[in-house]
Design a protein around this nucleic acid. Structure first.
Lengths: 337, 337
DNA sequence: TTGTAGGCGTTATCAC
DNA sequence: GTGATAACGCCTACAA
């Protein structure tokens, strides 16, 4: 059994309330006694028990982070950012994977409820629409990262999906491409819809008509990108450039092209979204839209903590994406090796 | 304020101890009263408060998971496995990144201590050697995944690094390669040493002399693999096959080869270790040693829970790696496209 | 089968 | 400046 505040009190021959005050650096306690108590506590190896404290203060200094799966590199990078500032502020982070499974979604909320987390960060892209009201029941501040559901929540930070998609599609159009495809994410919800509409916007501004045949659906993972790209390759009139929902999709698309012997970017330009750590090491290095993942996680956490500390604010932050041009996109008809 | 057990007691016109018993499905309470109480609790939306329970039972049903960084895809896949069984068993997981920073390592242990986690899973590959004694002070069961420090801890699950490396190196030797290089991880500690020695073993059994010039050092990430491969390419007598510490290193190595215009596997075979989700989508699909990552996470958690539930066991599990041959390795001198 | 009472480790409100 | 004392929400003897 670890020492309690009472053990320290006994050692210091004071009451446990004095110990509590001394350890909390309260002004109301004699400087010297306070120092003596702190010294004794330290020597004895006393560690405060957060459970007791939580019961008394009804705050746990704990937040819950729900994701579809942390095995997704994109999610993991955001998680790292969140955990980073949480630790700085003395909060701990419960990690929960929903796996896009409604039963687990319910279980996660229950768990957070029963553990009395002070706040929640949600980044569960494929989460059912029923999830949000469930989360709202928790009655704690909720911060959404890359919100996948339109409206509803007060606090969120998201990449500018539409703007990013516009940026990338315009980049492709500027390279002279006319037949530009989009490989979406069939479970992509809001962000997919927004990237799709950014794509449509940019086509229009470039005077290119949107052709439904050039819109394929992946699943946000390489396998889906591979399949979608194969369907595009089967077209009589192939696209010359393909903008993918995310980098994972693009990785699959690149694989399909290599298998089919189509050279990138000489015969086909490929672009992604996210800028995962490996994007610059792909063959060829991937042109993409950078999301500042860790930074978004950090900011999400920082805002949540502001809220928890009572600040009144309404944060709906949109972060601009950054166009990162690498070697997977090139002018139409360019003859690269 | 959420309802407490006392509120339910009031509603049901019984004492709070009866409610406690009823909700715990105790036999000692009248079936009908119990049912009535449960019904009332449910209707009122009662959610047990784990904090109170923990204080009373001195168990939190919480575990801590320390990693170097969850942004590493390998770590993230293990995390998913751990979280999976934790949820099933009613445990919650605190995620903590040490970032290989001694100060944070200390902070993490403190946090776990103060939050009274019931157990800890450690997967902090670059963690300082001082860390382990610190963790031991926690005085809770500790489970190591892919242990990076020789000896010391009772419970661990690790890939058979040496066996896996032997498997891969033998595979390369069997393809006819004589000049086989190894790109290690300069921060790789135990697992790097073991893979290195498996590599050395296999060379010896194949009658190949180990040449120090063919041992290069990366850092476990693509950038390190790229650099290391460039140094190997600068050799007068280049290797014809390269076994990399892990897939991330191999990704960097592949990039270096593409940049240098060296064809894989025609001119150079490349192999990795881990079998990350993207390995099969690389150019060319990567030959590697599969670690059952999620499964290892699940097993680590399962064993920890056995320990927490009082079972006496000493688990030092070694999981065999599986050789996955894809297209990045080929017979020496084969003329592929 | 049920209720009363005490305790888990804190913080917080009173007196003194 | 300090010490009793009473919460916080739950579990668990012990008594009835």
């Amino acid at each position: 059994m670890p020492l309690s505040i009472k053990d320290v009190a006994r050692l210091a021959r004071v009451s446990h309330s004095t110990v509590s005050r001394a350890l909390a650096n309260s002004q109301a306690v004699n400087r010297l006694t306070a120092e003596r108590i702190r010294r004794i506590a330290k020597d004895a190896g006393y560690r405060p028990n957060t459970i007791g404290r939580s019961l008394a203060t009804s705050r746990t200094r704990t937040i819950g982070f729900v994701v579809t799966t942390v095995a997704d590199p994109f999610v993991a990078e955001v998680a790292a950012g969140i955990e980073d500032v949480a630790r700085q502020r003395g909060y701990a982070v419960f990690l929960a994977n929903s796996n896009a499974d409604p039963d687990r979604e319910v279980a996660v909320v229950r768990s957070f409820q029963e553990r009395r987390v002070d706040g929640v960060i949600v980044m569960a892209s494929r989460v059912g629409g029923l999830y949000m009201p469930l989360l709202a029941e928790l009655d704690v501040p909720i911060m959404l990262v890359d919100n996948q559901h339109p409206g509803g929540f007060a606090h969120s930070i998201s990449i500018d999906d539409r703007g990013g998609a516009r940026l990338m599609t315009s980049h492709l159009a500027a390279l002279g491409h006319k037949r530009i495809a989009y490989v979406g994410d069939r479970n992509g919800m809001q962000s997919d819809a927004d990237r799709m509409s950014g794509y449509a916007d940019a086509l229009q501004s470039s005077g290119i008509e949107l052709d439904a045949a050039y819109v394929a659906l992946g699943n946000g993972a390489p396998a889906g990108g591979l399949e979608a790209m194969q369907s595009l390759l089967a077209l009589k009139q192939r696209p010359t450039a393909v903008f993918c929902y995310n980098d994972m999709t693009a990785i699959g698309a690149l694989r399909a092209l290599h298998k089919a012997g189509v050279r990138v970017p000489a015969e086909m330009s490929v672009a992604g979204f996210d800028d995962l750590a490996i994007a610059s090491f792909l063959q060829p290095p991937l042109t993409t839209v950078r999301q500042p993942k860790a930074e978004m996680g950090r900011q999400a956490a920082a805002i949540l903590f502001e809220l928890l500390e009572g600040k009144q604010l309404e944060a709906r932050i949109t972060v601009p994406g950054e166009l990162i041009v690498r070697e997977s996109t090139a002018p139409l008809g360019s003859i690269a090796l």
